[in-house]
Amino acid sequence: MFRRSLFGRMLTSFACLLLAAVIGFGATTSASAQDRRQNAPGEFDFYVLSLSWSPSFCEGAAERGNGGGRSQQLQCGGRPFSFVVHGLWPQYERGYPEYCDRDSWLDRNIMTSMLDLMPAPGLIFNEWKKHGTCSGLGPRGYFETIRKARAAVKIPPEFIDLANPKTVSPAEVEDAFIKINPGLPANAIAVTCNRSRLSEVRICMSKDLQFRGCDEVDRQACRRDQLTMPPVRGG
């Protein structure tokens, strides 16, 4: 009886160790397959060009009552801004990399050169750290790519000098962009919202800045029926 019991416990222990080894090997293999790509600079599938509707950002900031510092004052002061660049984000087909080089720094001269498109110094620094370091490009190359991506997208004329609040549906905004940008497919653009305001228009582009579909980004679009576009400030 003792021998049988001891033998049984030995078999059970061996089986548990074998199972743990198999599971551990599978987990290690899976993690290794992911780690070879996750947050590796330049290893991504496409870009998302995010265009923020500046009046919505500024109205939200005013409601929160925070001064926002110099960055917010530059964007929400007297100069009229409509759509501004939030960022150009490397993406995977599912998910995205971020902070691929936390030790990287951005030269102040490069930052100031981008203020016409991204009118907030803090935003520019953050976009480089969080997204630009994952592009596989140096700082100058990354921001030159942002400028090229922005130049490749036409803004519908009805949004450029919006003088009064405008009520729109997300589909209407998408259709306006699709109409004026030949080759932009419906699944390559997504409108996002913050409460009842239009927040951003996100457009997916290949690494060579051609429009391309992006189902995951498209699924994250705003589902509200109607949105408000506050008017352009100042000006």
Rank of each mutant, 00 (worst) to 15 (best):
Q38G: 06
P90W: 01
E172M: 06
L227A: 07
V22K: 03
D116F: 08
R3V: 15
I180R: 10
M111C: 13
P185K: 01
G42L: 05
T112A: 08
C204A: 15
G69K: 05
R140H: 09
L115G: 07
G138P: 06
N164E: 15
P157A: 01
S71D: 01
C214K: 03
D215E: 06
N66Y: 12
R94K: 15
P121K: 00
A221E: 08
F211Q: 01
A15F: 11
P182H: 07
F177M: 00
R4H: 12
D103K: 12
M111L: 15
W53G: 04
P119V: 00
R212Y: 11
R36A: 12
V201T: 08
L227Q: 13
L198E: 01
V48W: 14
S32W: 11
L115H: 01
A33C: 13
R202S: 11
P156T: 06
P119W: 03
D208Q: 11
V153N: 07
L123E: 10
S113N: 10
P119F: 00
L88W: 03
G234M: 05
R147G: 04
D45P: 10
E174L: 05
L18E: 15
C214Y: 10
K130R: 14
E98N: 06
T29C: 11
C76D: 08
R150W: 11
Q220E: 12
R195D: 13
Q91D: 14
G8T: 09
G78W: 02
V168Y: 10
T192F: 01
D218R: 09
N194K: 11
T28S: 15
D35G: 12
Y47W: 12
F177I: 00
R94Q: 15
A171S: 14
L17S: 09
L74C: 09
A186I: 04
G136H: 08
K179P: 14
A163R: 02
V48N: 07
N194E: 10
P55N: 00
T167G: 10
P231F: 00
G234L: 03
C134G: 05
S196V: 05
I146F: 02
Q220D: 13
L88V: 01
R224L: 08
W89F: 08
A176L: 12
F14Q: 09
D116T: 02
C193F: 04
F46S: 11
F143Y: 13
P182W: 06
L123D: 12
A163I: 00
S135Y: 03
I146A: 02
D208L: 08
Y96I: 15
N181P: 09
E63L: 08
S206N: 02
E216C: 01
A152D: 11
A40W: 07
G24R: 12
V84K: 03
A163C: 01
P156D: 06
L162A: 03
